[in-house]
Design a protein around this nucleic acid. Sequence first.
DNA 1: CCAAAAGTGTTTTCTCTACACCCATGT
DNA 2: ACATGGGTGTAGAGAAAACACTTTTGG
Lengths: 234, 234
Amino acid sequence: MTRIYSKHPKHFVAVDCIIFGYDIIEKELKLLLIKRNFEPAKGKWSLAGGFIAENESMTQAACRVLYQLTGLKNLYMEQSYAYGGVDRDPGARVISVSYFALIKIQSIDKDRQEINGAHWRSIAKLPDLIFDHKRMVDRALAELQNNIKVRPVGFELLPEKFTLVQLQDLYEAIYQRGIDKRNFRKKILSMNLLEKLDEKEKMTSKKGAWYYRFIHQKYIDFKEKGFYFNLDVN
Amino acid sequence: MTRIYSKHPKHFVAVDCIIFGYDIIEKELKLLLIKRNFEPAKGKWSLAGGFIAENESMTQAACRVLYQLTGLKNLYMEQSYAYGGVDRDPGARVISVSYFALIKIQSIDKDRQEINGAHWRSIAKLPDLIFDHKRMVDRALAELQNNIKVRPVGFELLPEKFTLVQLQDLYEAIYQRGIDKRNFRKKILSMNLLEKLDEKEKMTSKKGAWYYRFIHQKYIDFKEKGFYFNLDVN
DNA sequence: CCAAAAGTGTTTTCTCTACACCCATGT
DNA sequence: ACATGGGTGTAGAGAAAACACTTTTGG
């Protein structure tokens, strides 16, 4: 039975992970990139990637790559696109499936990051990336921009408690444009998915801004009732 | 150089094509399915698929599979999703990337279709499909439903000239719900992408309905000016 | 007391929705 | 003349957009 398809060729198949993080201080969307430590293109910047093993599903492979780099499990992760050009990798013909992950920058395992030569780089000024990794990033970013309008994935990039100013800054960083403060607040609050905490963030202003928390369970409940998340504001 | 990655395993990689067509008479969205003529699952219904060859890109493979079945080139085609579960194919571990295509039913090469044992089946009452092909169809259909709201892809499923009634019927078949006639017409016509022809379709009514044509070039021009297609009507 | 950032409502504009009758023609 | 499907407009509701001042407090 295992020889049924044997007249057909086999291929290397890899996963590459586009790892997004949000720098709450610099108000910049960032990407976790690594200095490649093997040939070809050793020393160049690349996405975190790895080959799919014999008895490993593609999803497992993507999770493994992410875990090795960040020490994190159960990340928000989504498949982006499969790249199948014959010459995309000069080392050999490799088919690569890209995944993008959203992670809370502050939750990352610094040691692992060091070991793997990983660095956060602002999406606005990325270095040159190997192969077709820039294309992968562009596509994933476009998907993220669409996604964040219509699903509450922004919260994956923020700490548990965040202020409305921080949330808006995140949206502005991802959309790459300004948003009207009053309209933004009106819309996000009207969805009833945030809980106001009895605590203020006092680092960035004298007055201080109230912390909020995203209530995930409420979103699940609402969704079942046919509610749609929407934060596509001017 | 070609042995660089050789410690890693290789995999069979296939493409599977979800081929949508629209039956203008029965007002039904259809899928082109084939009776599989090889083991495993010989004789069962499946999507059109094929393995990726040595020096063939994934896109080329998908086009080849489509061409073999339909005799058509330059179809509207889009990658849908990569399926990488270890046990998805009982014959061997096969990674499969699905593509969906939109074709004008009447343009198909009947002979090829016969030879390949291909049949149009209504999406509303599909037979059991092999492996995870049903999941592939479900995902592709959801993508089509989203896509058709926001890109003028519906016209790929209709003949060159079509009536507004036919266009609306198509949208109703894909959305699987009714649409208000006046609102639909108002919205599609206000986009200025259709040209009214001096000819009526007289088969289905005594009065006859005006034929229209989609002006693809106009869409390209508008898009450059930041215009967005939208046909998300009640 | 003042600089700096947080927070707050209203009006206008536009888009979406609901809805019912006349038109053309082949039989 | 009538049955059949094609074609048309308007009013009301709701959502999106535009817009500027007050509050708080650390220094």
